[in-house]
Amino acid sequence: MYVYILTNPTKTVLYIGTTNDLTRRLFEHSEGRGNVGKFTGKYQADLLIYFEICPDAVQAIAREKQLKGWTRAKKEALINGFNPEWKEIDLETWKG
């Protein structure tokens, strides 16, 4: 399971989610771009900038809820420690 954070091209929005297949979920977010009925579509938040691997769904959901409760500053600090330049992560080439 994964917990992940997406942002938009201007880096003004942060979206936090969970999935068991990060590649598939990123594709789904990119396909929904511009779909104003969904948060990620409305704000064009489909750029992966952070992710964590969790052992199971229970822990992933708990971590997602924890992150969603954080301030923007605390979320930014987490991202900066993982991906200081906030570059879009390509899962095929990511070396961490």
Score class of each variant (00 low, 15 high):
4 Y>N: 05
4 Y>E: 07
4 Y>C: 05
4 Y>F: 13
5 I>V: 14
5 I>H: 02
6 L>F: 04
6 L>Q: 04
7 T>F: 03
7 T>H: 07
7 T>Y: 04
7 T>G: 07
7 T>D: 02
8 N>D: 07
8 N>M: 13
8 N>C: 12
8 N>W: 05
8 N>R: 07
9 P>C: 01
9 P>T: 00
9 P>R: 15
9 P>H: 09
9 P>E: 07
9 P>F: 07
9 P>W: 12
10 T>Y: 09
10 T>A: 14
10 T>H: 08
11 K>F: 12
11 K>H: 15
11 K>W: 06
11 K>C: 13
11 K>D: 10
12 T>K: 12
12 T>C: 09
12 T>L: 03
14 L>E: 01
14 L>F: 09
14 L>P: 01
14 L>I: 03
14 L>M: 10
15 Y>F: 03
16 I>S: 02
16 I>H: 11
17 G>R: 00
17 G>S: 11
17 G>L: 04
18 T>E: 12
18 T>N: 05
18 T>Q: 10
19 T>I: 10
19 T>K: 05
20 N>I: 14
21 D>V: 08
22 L>K: 02
22 L>F: 13
22 L>P: 06
22 L>H: 08
22 L>S: 04
23 T>F: 13
23 T>K: 14
24 R>D: 11
24 R>W: 14
25 R>K: 10
26 L>A: 05
27 F>S: 11
27 F>W: 09
27 F>L: 12
28 E>S: 12
28 E>T: 09
28 E>K: 10
29 H>D: 05
30 S>M: 00
30 S>H: 06
30 S>V: 07
31 E>Y: 10
32 G>S: 11
32 G>Y: 10
33 R>E: 14
33 R>L: 15
33 R>P: 10
33 R>N: 07
34 G>L: 12
34 G>T: 06
34 G>M: 06
34 G>N: 13
34 G>A: 14
34 G>S: 11
34 G>C: 15
35 N>W: 14
35 N>K: 09
35 N>H: 10
36 V>N: 15
36 V>F: 00
36 V>K: 03
36 V>Y: 00
37 G>N: 14
38 K>Y: 02
38 K>T: 04
39 F>G: 03
39 F>A: 06
39 F>E: 01
39 F>Q: 08
40 T>R: 07
40 T>F: 02
41 G>D: 09
41 G>Q: 14
41 G>K: 10
41 G>W: 07
41 G>C: 05
42 K>G: 00
43 Y>T: 13
43 Y>R: 13
43 Y>N: 06
43 Y>S: 06
44 Q>Y: 15
45 A>D: 10
45 A>P: 04
45 A>S: 11
45 A>T: 09
45 A>L: 02
45 A>Q: 07
45 A>Y: 04
46 D>C: 05
46 D>V: 06
46 D>T: 12
46 D>Q: 03
47 L>T: 03
47 L>S: 12
48 L>T: 02
48 L>H: 02
50 Y>D: 07
50 Y>K: 09
50 Y>V: 00
50 Y>P: 00
50 Y>A: 08
51 F>S: 04
51 F>V: 03
51 F>W: 07
52 E>H: 09
52 E>D: 09
53 I>R: 12
53 I>L: 06
54 C>Q: 12
54 C>H: 12
54 C>G: 04
54 C>S: 13
54 C>K: 01
